[in-house]
Design a protein around this nucleic acid. Structure first.
Lengths: 305, 305
DNA sequence: ATTTGCTTTTGTCTAGGACAAATGACTATA
DNA sequence: TATAGTCATTTGTCCTAGACAAAAGCAAAT
C-alpha cells in the first residue's frame, strides 16, 4: 500500500526529475555502465525505481562538485556512504528545529508549517529569517529529498509555503523611495526561483526597491529590461551551474552591453567556483554578505554622483 | 540601439523559449523545410532572429489547436495573418483597461502595475479579480508576447507581480476550519503555475482550505500526498496539453489509485478538448464554473456523510 | 603564487531511422 | 441525424553511434 506506485520510469521522467539531460543519461550508460535500464516492448529505456533513487543521489553529489566519472559508476552502498558523509559535513546550525518542521510536514500537518514559518518570521525579522531559517530549511529539505527521506511532493509543499511566506514578508516592507533600484532575475537554464525570492526579501527589507523578473530571462531581454527600467544594480542568482562556458559567455555579453552605470552582481552557490569572471561583475558568495555589499555599492554611487 | 542583441540562437535556447522539444525542431526542419537555421563553425544549428519570432507564433497557433503540418510551412505573412485573426477572436471584455496596464509596464513603470493590480483587487474582491482581471491579463500578455509586441522580460515582470498579488490576496483570506480541503497541483510536464495560483485564490476566497503542491508533481507522489493529507478534493490544472496520451494514462492511473472518497477535478484551457476521461473525474472547463462546481461537491459530500 | 600548456573528462550536438499514439476522413450501424 | 468502427496520415519522441569543443585536472615553468 505504501509501496512506490510507478516501478519504472521513462527517460523523459528521469531527466526531468533529476535535472540531467536525456543525452547525458544515454552517454553515462555508454561510458560508465550505469544506469542500465531495462527496455520496454518498444525498445525504450525503462528505469527501475532503484536506479532512479541512485541517480538522484548522484545528481546531488554532482551539485556538490563531484565528477561523473568518479560517482556514476559507484555501487549503491558506496554512493550512500558518500552521500551521508556529505550531508553530515553541511548540517546547518539550526538543524534540530528545522528537522522538527520537516517532520511536521511529514505527518501531514501543513498548517503547522505555515504557522511556524510565520512565527519565525515575526521573531527574527526578515533578514535573520532568510539567513537562519529559509536558506537552511531549503538546504535541509533538499538533502532529505536527495536521500529519499522526503517524497518530492512534500518538498514542493514546503517550497511553496516558504515562497508564500517570503513574498508576504516582501510585500509588507516599505521600500524607501530614494533607495537603490535592483533588477533581479536568473539567466536561462536556472529554474530555481527560491534564491531569487530570498534575495528579493533581503533587499526589500533593507529599503531597496527590487524588480523581480522571475527566472530564466534571456540575455538580450535582460539588456532591454535594463534600458527600460534603468536600475542601479542588476543582480543574478545561480543555484548550480551546469554549463560554465555558456554562463561565462553570457556574463561577458552582459558586461559589454549593459550600461556601465549599472553594477552587475552575481551570487548563489553556483558561482563560488567560477573563474574568468569579467572585471566589472561583483560576486556575492554568501547570502549574509549581500547586505554589506549593497551598502558599499550604495555609498559608492552616492559619492560618484 | 533598440535592435535585438542576439541575432542568432542555439537549438537549446529556441527549444526552451518556445517550449518545443529539440527533436521536434529538427524533425520539422526535415519534414516541412522550416525552420532552416544556418550552421555555425561547429556545424550546429543557429537560428536567426526572424525564424525565432516565426517559431514563437507557430507555437502559439499550435496551442490554439492548429496542426504542425498546416502552419509550420507557412510564410511569415500568412502566419501573421492567421495570428492576428486568432487574436481578434479571443479579445477579452476588459481589454482596453488591460491594454493600458500592459502599456504602463511597457513604459517602465512597474510601480503603476503593482498599484493598479492592488486597487483592482480591492475594488472587485478576490473572485471577480481573478475572473475579470487576472485571467484576461494573462491571456492578453501571452498574446502580446506571441506577436512580438511585448518582450519576454515584460511578460515575466507582469506574471511575477500578478502572482505576488494573487498570493497576498490568498494569505489575507481566512479559510473556514470545517470547509472542504483541496489538494492542488499540476502533473509533470505542465510548468505553468499561474492557473494554479488563480484557482488557489478562488478557492481560498470561498473559504476552502487549499494545499498547493506547486507544479509538476509526479503521479505516484500525488497518490502518496493524497494518502497523507486526505483531502476531499484533488484539483489539477492544465494550461495546454501536449501529450494527450500520457495525460489520459496518468488520469486513469489516478482514478484507479486515489481513494474513492476523493473527488478528482481537472480544469484549464488544456482539457477542453479531451475525450476518454475516466468517469469519476469531473471537468471544469471555465474558471467561473469552479465555484458552483465546488459548492455542488460540498453539498454532495455533506449529504452522503 | 600565478600563468602556461597538455591530457582526460564530459555534455551536447548531429543524422537519419523507426514506431506508436493521435488525428482526420470515411464508412457503416442504430 | 448521430454514434461507433476502420483505415491512412500526421506527428512527437526515442533510438544508435559518432564527433567535438569546453572544462577540469595536472604538471611544468615563470
Amino acid at each position: 500500500m505504501n509501496q512506490p506506485v510507478n516501478l519504472f520510469a521513462s527517460i523523459d521522467e528521469i531527466s526531468r526529475d533529476i535535472g540531467v539531460g536525456k543525452d547525458t543519461l544515454r552517454v553515462w550508460e555508454r561510458r560508465y555502465g550505469f544506469p542500465q535500464p531495462i527496455r520496454n516492448d518498444k525498445g525504450e529505456r525503462s528505469y527501475p525505481r532503484e536506479q532512479w533513487d541512485r541517480l538522484r543521489t548522484i545528481s546531488r553529489l554532482l551539485d556538490r562538485g563531484y565528477r561523473p566519472g568518479n560517482v556514476v559508476a559507484l555501487t549503491a552502498a558506496q554512493l550512500d556512504a558518500l552521500a551521508t558523509q556529505e550531508q553530515l559535513d553541511t548540517t546547518a546550525v539550526e538543524a534540530p528545529q528545522l528537522d522538527a518542521l520537516i517532520d511536521s510536514v511529514r505527518q501531514g500537518d501543513v498548517g503547522q508549517l505555515q504557522q511556524c514559518l510565520s512565527t519565525k518570521l515575526q521573531q527574527q525579522g526578515a533578514q535573520q529569517f532568510v539567513l537562519n531559517t529559509a536558506a537552511p530549511l531549503l538546504e535541509q529539505t533538499g538533502n532529505a529529498w536527495a536521500s529519499g527521506q522526503l517524497p518530492i511532493y512534500m518538498e514542493h509543499l514546503i517550497t511553496h509555503h516558504l515562497g508564500r511566506t517570503l513574498q508576504q514578508a516582501a510585500i509588507e516592507c516599505q521600500p524607501s523611495e530614494q533607495g537603490l533600484q535592483v533588477l533581479l532575475t536568473t539567466l536561462p537554464g536556472e529554474r530555481h526561483g527560491m534564491g531569487l525570492m530570498m534575495v528579493d526579501l533581503l533587499l526589500t527589507a533593507q529599503g531597496t526597491r527590487t524588480f523581480n523578473l522571475g527566472v530564466e530571462t534571456p540575455v538580450d531581454e535582460l539588456i532591454r529590461a535594463c534600458e527600460a527600467i534603468q536600475p542601479q544594480v542588476l543582480a543574478l542568482s545561480f543555484s548550480s551551474v551546469q554549463k560554465r562556458a555558456a554562463l561565462i559567455g553570457q556574463l561577458r555579453e552582459l558586461s559589454l552591453k549593459i550600461p556601465a552605470s549599472v553594477v552587475i552582481l552575481i551570487g548563489g552557490e553556483g558561482v563560488a567556483k567560477l573563474r574568468m569572471i569579467p572585471q566589472r561583475i561583483r560576486v556575492v558568495k554568501k547570502l549574509d554578505q549581500l547586505e554589506s555589499t549593497l551598502n558599499a555599492i550604495g555609498k559608492q554611487i552616492k559619492n560618484s554622483s
